[in-house]
Design a protein around this nucleic acid. Structure first.
Lengths: 107, 107
DNA sequence: CATATACATAGATATGTGTCAATGTCTATT
DNA sequence: AATAGACATTGACACATATCTATGTATATG
C-alpha cells in the first residue's frame, strides 16, 4: 500500500501559513466560532473566511452552522493520519539507528 | 512559553509540496545522496536541488558533502518538534472530550 | 591538465497565495 | 418588513512558488 503523498502535501499546505496553524492549535482546545477566532488576529473578516475555507477543504477542520454562527473544530481522523505519518518516520529513524554504517548504500 | 507558530508554519511549508514530503519520507529509511533521490522522480536536477535547499533551509533535513556527493538525512531534533506539536494537539482533543458540551463558550 | 560527474546558481516564466475593500447572503430581532 | 449581525464571495493586486534551460563550480579520474 503506497502512501498518498498528494494528500499529505495537502494537509501540510493547509498548515503552512502562520495564521492557519495558529488557528488549528487554538481549535485543539475545542470548537470555536469564526467571530471568536477573528478576535485573536489582526486580519479582516474576509481573510479569516479565506483561511477557514482552506482548513476545511483540506479535511483537517470541520465547520457546522449553528444559527448565525459557523463553529469550527478539528477533524480527529485526519489529525490522526498526520500524527501517524510523523510517528512512522520517527520509528523508521530509530530502527535504522544502529545499522546506518553498514547499510548505507554506495552512491 | 508561547508557541512559535512562525517556525511551525515554516516546517509545514517545507513539506507542503508533494515531491518534498515524498523525499522526506524516503529519508526516513536513511541517508541518501541527491543522485539516488533524483532517480525516483520525473524532475530535472536543478529542480531537485531547489527542493533540497528548501528542506535544508527549514531545518528538517541536513546535508553533508561527501566527495562529489551531497548526502541528505532527516534532522531528528526538528522532526521531534513537529511530532510533539501534533501529539500535543491530539492530547488536548482527548482531554476536552467529555466536557465539550458544558465548556463550549457562548458566541 | 583535460575530462566527466555531481551538484548549485541564475534567469525566465506561468501559476498560486494572502490580503483587502466592496458586496452578497442568510438568520434572528424588533 | 426592516434592520443588524455573522459569514461568504468577488475582484484586484502584490508577492511567492515550482519548473525549466543554460551555465557555473567543485571533485575525482585517466
Amino acid at each position: 500500500m503506497r502512501k498518498n503523498y498528494h494528500i499529505y502535501a495537502a494537509y501540510m499546505k493547509a498548515l503552512s501559513d502562520e495564521t492557519r496553524i495558529n488557528i488549528f492549535d487554538m481549535l485543539a482546545q475545542g470548537e470555536l466560532c469564526a467571530c471568536k477566532i477573528l478576535e485573536e488576529f489582526n486580519i479582516t473578516q474576509p481573510t479569516l473566511s479565506y483561511h477557514m475555507k482552506i482548513l476545511c477543504d483540506s479535511g483537517l477542520v470541520s465547520g457546522r452552522k449553528d444559527g448565525v454562527w459557523m463553529k469550527y473544530s478539528i477533524n480527529r481522523d485526519n489529525l490522526e493520519i498526520v500524527k501517524e505519518l510523523f510517528e512512522g518516520i520517527g520509528v523508521s529513524l530509530q530502527t535504522q539507528n544502529n545499522c546506518t554504517a553498514k547499510c548505507s548504500a554506495k552512491c
